[in-house]
Amino acid sequence: MKRFLKKSLLFLICTLSFYSLVVAVTLTCMRQQATAKLSHTPANIILGHSHPECAFNDALIENFQNLSASGEAAFYTYQKLKLILKENPGIENVFIEFSNNMITDSKDLWIWGDEKMNAFFPQYSPFMDTEDLWILLKNNPESFLFNLSIATRIHLQDLLLGRTDYAHKLGGYLPLKKKLDLKSPVAPEPNSHTTQKKQKVALSPTHLYYTKRLVEYCQAHNINTYLIRSPQHQNFAGRENEKVFQQQKERLFPDVEFLDFCNFPLDNSEFADRGHLNAKGAEVFSLWFQKLIENGLFNEQDKSTYIQKNIQEMISN
C-alpha cells in the first residue's frame, strides 16, 4: 500500500506540476504578446454590458469607440480595460456603464456562473491576477478548472497561429432591429429580491468592487472617468431599486461624475425592449450625444447638470 501511495502521489504531483507549467507559460506568453491597438485610436471609449452596447452607435460619434459587450460583468471589463489602456495610450476619457441592474446579486452569476465563465474566462484569463483567479476558483471550482483547460487550449492554438490581436474581440456597437413589444410583461430583475415598498435589494459586492476597481484603475492612469447610465424605457423593471442604486452610487463613487441618460426622451418605437435601444433609438441618441460633445460637454464643470439641462430642453421641445 505504501508503495502504491508513494508512486501514485509522485506521479500525480509530477503530472499536475507539468500541467500547471503548461498553463502558466501559455497564459503568461499570451499576456505578453496580446495586442489590442484600436484602429481609430479614439480618445473616448465606453465600457459596459448590453445597455451601452446597443445605445452608442460609435460610427456617429467622433473620436469615440463603443467597447461594451452583452452580458459582460465589471469583473471581465476590468481585465479588458487593463489591456486596452496598456495598448492605447491616447485614451483620455473612459465612460463606464453603471445602471440599476448592475448592483444586484444576479450579477454574481455574470462573474462565476457557468454560462458567463464559458463566454468570458477563456478570453480574459491571461490578464487576470491571483485575486481575480481566486474569486472564480472559490465560487465555481468545477467551471473554473474546466475553463482553465479551455483557455490554455485556445491560447496555445492562438500563440502557435500568431493570433494574438484582441482588437476585434473587445466588443462593439450592436444594432438591434426589433421594436419594443408593449404587451411584454415588465419582468423583475432575475434573482434580485426586490420589493417596491421596502427596497430590499440583495447586492453583488463583487460586482460593485470591480466597478470600483475599474474607476480606480483609470484614475491611477490619469484618465478621466465617468459613470454613465444609458437610456432606458420608463417602465424598465430594473429601476425598481432606484433608491438603493443611488445610495450605492453615493457610497462607492462620491467623487465620480455620473452622466445619467436614463430619462432621455425616446419613442416606444426606438426601443428594442425596455432595457435596450434599437438601431433607430441608438441613432437618435448617438447623434444627440455627438452634439453634446461638440457643444463642449468635456469643458463643462458640472457635466451631470449640463446633461440634465439638455435632456429637459429636449423634453420640453
Binding site: 506521479f11 503530472t15 500541467y19 503548461v22 464559458n118 474546466f146 490554455t152
Partner: peptide, 19 residues
C-alpha cells in the same frame, strides 16, 4: 511508459470537451 500516462492525463486536461 509513465510519460505516456502523464501525457494522457494532460491531454484530458487540455482537450476535455464541454462537460
Amino acid at each position: 511508459r509513465l510519460s505516456f500516462y502523464a501525457s494522457l492525463c494532460i491531454t484530458i486536461f487540455l482537450l476535455a470537451g464541454q462537460q
